[in-house]
Nucleic acid binder design. Structure first.
Lengths: 104, 104
DNA sequence: TGAAATTATGTCGAATATGATATAATCTAA
DNA sequence: TTAGATTATATCATATTCGACATAATTTCA
């Protein structure tokens, strides 16, 4: 992995192992991250379409604006569980969720 | 919710709120749990198909037999993240994973 | 049968995610 | 431009999940 990209990921909080480890875990790790990011995008798109602020969403979810921001940003501290539960709570249509999940 | 069922869920570790909260959260909570369970089943089916023990899977995942058992059992201490990463690590065929995830 | 293998359950310290808060950065209209 | 609104980032205490271990329950098969 090129150094610059690794630095960027590490700065964001992603754990990046050594070259061998990266090569070994890359496929499933990449798929996992891709899945998360697609759900993040789905969440943001859904909010934008409804013309709601992150604060609004936070209220609906019983969370905070900062966490909603992290969800949308794909922060590594955000779990698939939180993303999926949030999308469901926002009444995300099955199709939308499908579309995101299909990008795995 | 009927008392018996609630008792069963609580005994298993599931958080069950009061009636109002239950009614409010039921749909998405149910969908979330169903989603998890479908991934649990996918994991077990995949292991059985490969004729591997939970111990084998634990080694592959760098985890423990007890956690694999909990994954397959749909224990509430198991996250979607762990399930998805496990399925990916086991080389879950794309279609299989999608199918499981799409049961939302 | 019953011993060995496999799976299930309970518990724990450590690791990680959470909502909350503060505040910085960015965007939006006027 | 600039004030107000919105979003991003940093940090924290708390809560939850993790792998590990012990051990119980169940299954397998000779």
């Amino acid at each position: 992995m090129e150094t610059a990209k690794r630095k960027r990921l590490e700065a964001k909080g992603w754990k990046v192992g050594d070259a061998a480890e990266w090569l070994k875990l890359a496929p499933e790790e990449a798929a996992y991250i891709e899945l998360k990011l697609s759900l993040c995008r789905a969440l943001r798109e859904r909010r934008i379409r409804k013309k709601l602020t992150q604060q609004d969403i936070a209220r609906i979810l019983g969370s905070s604006q900062s966490r909603v921001a992290k969800m949308e940003a794909g922060d590594p501290s955000v779990t698939l569980d939180l993303l999926v539960r949030s999308l469901l709570a926002l009444g995300s249509p099955k199709k939308k969720l499908e579309h995101a999940l299909l990008q795995v």
